[in-house]
Write a protein that binds this DNA or RNA. Structure first.
Lengths: 212, 212
DNA sequence: CGGCATCCTCTTTGATACTG
DNA sequence: CAGTATCAAAGAGGATGCCG
């Protein structure tokens, strides 16, 4: 993108991350950490592969993204955020909070990846038993899933591991989101088609107070 | 811009304000309040007039901007942020904070409008004498100026009024910014070409502690 | 003058195909 | 796997025209 050429902090930020797709690339790296090129592409449905290459290169030049060349065993290089890139988290969260109400009118055909829930879920959920041993909650929607690690007072994205999580939540977008955001309690969500298997304590441990 | 089509709060926010120029339009309205079309154009050097019309219309449709039709005496309609639009302030500030370090390497030919300083200045400066009567500080750089109103513990943008401010600060971008951001104290800034006229108390009242 | 709409050119995007 | 190459379509930027 051509620079705005304005001596203004916001315009300078947009010169770096204001291109189409750029902030979504940062979202992917912020949530998932190191990503291969194909991981990024899978997390950004709709992006053209040449654009992804262009954007990543630009973000690299601007000091937002760092490329880690393949350690010999693996045949893939990994992309990470730099420290400077990770500082975009506050701006990303603020924009996400602003955009969250728009999800209620989103068309059904929107693509979806469960790991996109990691940032909002970490805001909506609380670990109400910080002293208890950590547990893992899997959330499944629209064919994908994400595992959140709950422990030590935090709720965080958990890269996929092989053994079973302590509880699994699944259902339609609206219902899962309603439950996570505290607009529905478990009974209401179940009535609307939500499935919950596993340790009932897990949900109670993180559930926000039902509002309204 | 075409929608990302992603069921993600960040992507939905970008569907609304992710177009080129959109967030800068929000910046203008956030700082200056009601603006005529030509005020907007003047605050957005480089924008094509058809693009400005397109963007404003889109923001209106999305509930971010409200158009106030001309009250009979005046021959101009005014654009405002809606309440929902004003909620973008947190995201705007976060992006601006992230972009501020980039100003130190900005090319000299960047365009400039002093009112763009209003948001960062309100973050950098503090009213250390909230009980004193309010005073006005004018900041002049690059041919434009902005007046900040200091009082009641706040530092805020002040629409231009006719009578003289209590103090006037002027000089080159770097120096004024260095002083406002607390990287230079008054003596250092003066040595670097800063001019300060008027009540010396005004600057002392708001100046951040010199850092580093 | 304020608030656009039109026309034109140039750049960017999106979709697909192809390569080391 | 990690891109590059190609190309049609959409969007941006600049100039200018129009209308109350």
């Amino acid at each position: 993108m051509r620079s705005y050429g304005q001596y203004c902090a916001l315009a300078k930020a947009l010169d770096v991350v204001g291109d189409r797709w750029s902030l979504l690339i940062v979202r992917e790296l912020l949530i998932r950490g190191g990503c291969r090129y194909t991981d990024l592409r899978d997390g950004l449905p709709g992006i053209a592969t040449n654009l992804l290459a262009d954007r990543v290169r630009h973000l690299e030049e601007c000091g937002v993204v760092r490329r880690e060349e393949a350690p010999p065993p693996i045949a893939a290089s990994l992309f990470h955020l730099t420290a400077r890139g990770a500082e975009l988290e506050a701006a990303l969260r603020a924009l996400g909070r602003w955009g969250a109400p728009l999800l209620s009118t989103a068309p059904e055909r929107d693509t979806f990846r469960a790991h996109w829930l990691a940032l909002p879920a970490a805001e909506w959920l609380r670990d109400h038993s910080p002293e208890s041993p950590p547990v893992r909650l899997e959330i499944r929607m629209g064919g994908t899933s994400v595992i959140m690690l709950i422990g030590a007072g935090n709720v965080a994205y958990c890269p996929v591991v092989s053994d079973a999580p302590d509880a699994v939540l699944s259902g339609k977008r609206r219902v899962v989101l309603g439950l996570l955001a505290g607009k529905l309690d478990l009974a209401q969500a179940r009535a609307a088609g939500l499935h919950y298997q596993g340790d009932p304590q897990v949900l109670r441990r993180v559930q926000p107070l039902a509002v309204e």
